[in-house]
Simulated assay, not measured.
Amino acid sequence: MDRNDSFREFVAGHQQALMRTAYLLTGDAHQAEDLLQHVLLKVLGRWARLSRVEHPEAYARKALVNQHISWRRRRVRTELPTADPPERPYSSEDSTVVRLVMRQALMRLPPRQRAVIVLRYYEDRTERETAELMNCSVGTVKSQAHQALARLRTLAPELAPKLAGLETEEAFR
Results as ranks from 00 to 15, higher is better:
17 A>K: 12
17 A>G: 07
17 A>M: 10
17 A>F: 06
18 L>C: 11
18 L>K: 04
18 L>N: 11
19 M>W: 08
19 M>G: 04
20 R>W: 10
20 R>T: 07
20 R>A: 08
20 R>M: 04
20 R>G: 09
20 R>H: 08
22 A>E: 05
22 A>S: 04
22 A>Y: 05
23 Y>M: 01
23 Y>Q: 01
23 Y>V: 01
23 Y>P: 04
24 L>I: 01
24 L>A: 08
25 L>P: 05
25 L>I: 06
25 L>V: 00
25 L>T: 03
26 T>Y: 04
26 T>I: 00
26 T>K: 09
26 T>G: 06
27 G>F: 06
27 G>C: 05
27 G>V: 06
28 D>N: 05
29 A>K: 01
30 H>T: 12
30 H>F: 15
30 H>N: 15
31 Q>F: 13
31 Q>D: 08
32 A>M: 00
32 A>I: 00
32 A>V: 02
33 E>Y: 14
33 E>M: 00
33 E>T: 10
33 E>C: 04
34 D>V: 04
34 D>W: 02
34 D>N: 07
35 L>A: 03
36 L>D: 04
36 L>R: 10
37 Q>T: 11
37 Q>V: 01
37 Q>M: 08
37 Q>I: 00
37 Q>R: 05
38 H>L: 08
38 H>K: 14
39 V>H: 05
39 V>R: 04
40 L>T: 04
40 L>Y: 01
41 L>T: 14
41 L>R: 14
42 K>E: 11
42 K>W: 09
42 K>G: 15
42 K>M: 14
43 V>S: 05
43 V>C: 09
44 L>H: 14
44 L>G: 13
44 L>W: 15
45 G>R: 14
45 G>M: 02
46 R>T: 13
47 W>A: 03
47 W>D: 06
47 W>K: 03
48 A>C: 10
49 R>F: 13
49 R>E: 15
50 L>N: 07
50 L>T: 04
50 L>S: 02
